[in-house]
Design a binder for these strands. Sequence first.
DNA 1: GCCAACGTTGGC
DNA 2: GCCAACGTTGGC
Length: 137
Amino acid sequence: MAHWLLKSEPSSWSWQQQVEAGAKGTFWNGVRNHSAKLHLMAMKVGEEAFFYHSNEGKEIVGIVTIIKPYYPDPSDESGKFGMVDVRAVKPLKHPVTLEAIKAEPRLKDMVLVNNSRLSVQPVSEAEWTLICKLGGV
DNA sequence: GCCAACGTTGGC
DNA sequence: GCCAACGTTGGC
């Protein structure tokens, strides 16, 4: 099963808000980048993703799961982009910071490190397992 | 607040 | 179809 990383600025959408959305979950919209779109399209219901806070915190704070596969984003006038629905699964006991990821040689190939601007990223099995471990999950 | 990196736009 | 100019993102 594939794993992912979703980035959000806490000022626009935070982990706290994701948790408050509860079991119903929320849509993950606003993606306007083709690479990110391709990743969104590849997501399947039940797959899990890290929730990363950019700018403020710069750390992985929780895990979400996909509850609805890719569908068109009504807020996108061009009709080119879509979104998925996600729901909070659990927080990381210890948020894993960008600093910690950079300091870990086994995570040096993470997309987060090499292409930090991409808002939806794939995470390898090894990376997923290691970050869960670092996060105390 | 700055600026590098990246993606997109638009003139040719 | 190329590429310069511009806008946005996000780490610092």
